[in-house]
């Protein structure tokens, strides 16, 4: 049994890496929002679920390939995020950490149950023409969607990184993240940067949702599964650290698939919450973070 598991270990690790890239993209949105606004977006999972549904309906109603939908869903998610911060979270929270946590919790309840109300609780999947084709690596088969999503997620991370380091807006965002008052003094509209950052964070989810749809199913509770995953990655990598989100994403992806292989389907899920608790207790700054 153990030896059989060990022989499947490389396959599990590669599978974990594939998922890890997508997890990293989800976590990137969360860590970016935290790094700049210093708030924890508890509705992250629920918004990811919305993105999955958006991609699903684009495919279902207009037959648009989920990978093409990235171009549509990502900007829409960005605008949605911007609006919801500018006119919802921002004015309501009045800057208190716990208020934001509770407001985003309320938001996640509304989104999740709104989805249940409108879309019903059925699990939805898409059947792509190439969904069952796979690369033969000799010791394992790797389906096309997993590979495409892996590279798409990495590309998305690279684009985000480039945008953050090369554009004026990226510079402004980093300035606000580093020194809020200083940024205000040199004429940056901090409130606007907050909303833009929130929008970018949600845009990451829009892209991630499209990439996940060919691999995962979606139902109103999908977000719950990923909310702890995303938080674990962010805490593991260090709140606000982009590199941390990437590395953390891969670690969690591998932990999940190797854990599932060695401990079984049910107990395998324990890895994520265990890592989360241990990291928070022993190294709350994470692997790459500098401050709590």
């Amino acid at each position: 049994m153990i030896s059989a598991s060990l022989s499947m270990l490389p396959a599990a690790i590669i599978n974990g890496l594939m998922y890890g890239a997508i997890y990293a993209l989800v976590a990137l949105g969360l860590t970016l929002i935290y790094g700049v606004l210093h708030i924890i977006n508890f509705a992250h999972g629920a918004m990811l679920m919305l993105a999955l549904y958006a991609a699903f309906f684009l495919f279902h109603l207009f037959n648009i390939d989920p990978y093409f939908s990235i171009l549509i869903v990502t900007p829409c998610a960005g605008i949605f995020g911007y609006m919801i911060y500018r006119y919802g979270i921002g004015p309501l929270a009045k800057g208190k950490d716990q208020n934001i946590l509770l407001i985003t919790l309320g938001l996640s309840i509304i989104i999740e149950n709104g989805a249940l109300f409108f879309f019903s609780g059925d699990q939805q999947t898409v059947n792509l023409s190439y969904g069952f084709e796979a690369f033969d690596l000799g010791f394992m088969y790797l389906s096309y969607p997993k590979v495409i999503s892996f590279f798409a997620a990495l590309l998305m991370c690279a684009i985000l990184w480039a945008a953050m380091s090369l554009t004026d807006m990226g510079r402004a965002i980093r300035a606000v993240a580093k020194e809020r008052q200083g940024a205000r003094l040199v004429g940056i509209n901090v409130e606007r940067i907050f909303a833009v950052t929130f929008g970018i964070g949600i845009a990451c989810l829009g892209a991630a949702g499209c990439m996940m749809l060919p691999i995962f199913y979606v139902d109103p509770y999908t977000g719950n599964i990923f909310v702890l995953v995303a938080f674990t990655i962010v805490v593991l990598g260090g709140m606000g650290s982009v590199v941390g989100a990437l590395v953390g994403g891969f670690i969690i992806g591998i932990t999940e698939s190797v854990g599932g292989l060695l401990l079984g389907e049910s107990l395998g899920q324990i890895g994520i919450s265990l890592i989360f608790i241990l990291i928070l207790i022993f190294r709350p700054t994470g692997l790459f973070g500098s401050k709590v």
Binding site: P91, I103, G106, L107, I109, I110, N113
Partner: peptide, 10 residues
């Protein structure tokens, strides 16, 4: 419930 929570917090 979610709406009430947000309204109360706000």
């Amino acid at each position: 419930y979610g709406l009430i929570l947000i309204i109360i917090i706000g």
